[in-house]
Design a binder for these strands. Structure first.
Lengths: 149, 149
DNA sequence: TTATTTGTCTACTTCATCTATAGAGATTCT
DNA sequence: AGAATCTCTATAGATGAAGTAGACAAATAA
């Protein structure tokens, strides 16, 4: 299970991706549109700012925008930023590897081999799906590109 | 991430599967062999007994055994018993379905569609892998069958 | 029958994490 | 100056994870 925080982060980023051509977007607008508790979303966006996924401007007419291209932001990375490892056990995580304390022998642990398959299957999906791959976003991007011709 | 409890449950059941021909196995033996805190394991085994996966006998010469054939106990079911849904979000779970509170429209939620793929990939692996599929168990089962000839 | 060995049951603790909320502060624009 | 925004610090309640303690019940063997 991913946390609500991670789901909110994804929804907020997806919203920003859809509104990319509109420039700065208010926290309160995102919160209302995606039904995310406002103050909670603030905290999430600060995290995403630290991770350099989004950018903000304060004061009147301020707001948030994406920093990176939606085609470069994978769902897997967003979830990792917020929740940590995608792997079902630490001992099969690439980025958050940790030995299981109780494990007698990791090399022959069969649960580990099975969980590795789960990790790989999960990452295959989430690390190859980017914000730009969501159809509404794609539709907008295509439209935008058409306008530039 | 699965809980330690689920991992302990799997290790304990796998241990029981390996010792199947030996009859009753002591909690303390499993705990020592798999390095699981003894009292914690007790609680886990009681859960598994309620779920009718294992069986126990009290008193001297007591202990635990599997009730079901290791070829009938899937890893997915064990994890579900202990941790609940395998799905990354409730709204794509079959057995633990729940609508996301903040979701504006489930039918068009693209995060949901993506998470459904993750769920399916995970379940494809865990629901088709049984205790008997772990090699050490298989080796013993084969040996046992050979002895019966 | 009594002692010993085992599992059972109830209760508790400790700690961390999730999911927020409140409110003062800093910045920018008009 | 004043309004609109994001920012920072602090706090809090609920939940669950992970583990512990100790009395209790049942089975066996001496």
């Amino acid at each position: 299970m991913i946390s609500k925080k991670a789901k909110y982060a994804l929804k907020a980023l997806l919203y920003l991706a859809k509104q990319q051509d509109r420039g700065l977007v208010l926290i309160s607008e995102i919160a209302a549109a995606e039904r995310i508790p406002r103050k909670f979303l603030e905290a999430i966006l600060v995290d995403l700012k630290v991770q350099q996924i989004v950018q903000s401007t304060r004061g009147k007419n301020g707001g948030y925008t994406l920093v990176k291209d939606p085609a470069q932001i994978s769902v897997g990375n967003v979830i990792r930023m917020v929740d940590g490892p995608l792997a079902p056990v630490h001992c099969v995580s690439h980025l958050y590897y940790r030995k299981c304390e109780e494990c007698v022998d990791e090399a022959t642990c069969e649960i580990r081999l099975l969980m590795k398959r789960v990790r790989d299957a999960t990452c295959d999906i989430l690390d190859t799906t980017f914000l730009a791959d969501f159809s509404k976003v794609t539709a907008l991007v295509v439209e935008e590109e058409a306008n530039q011709i």
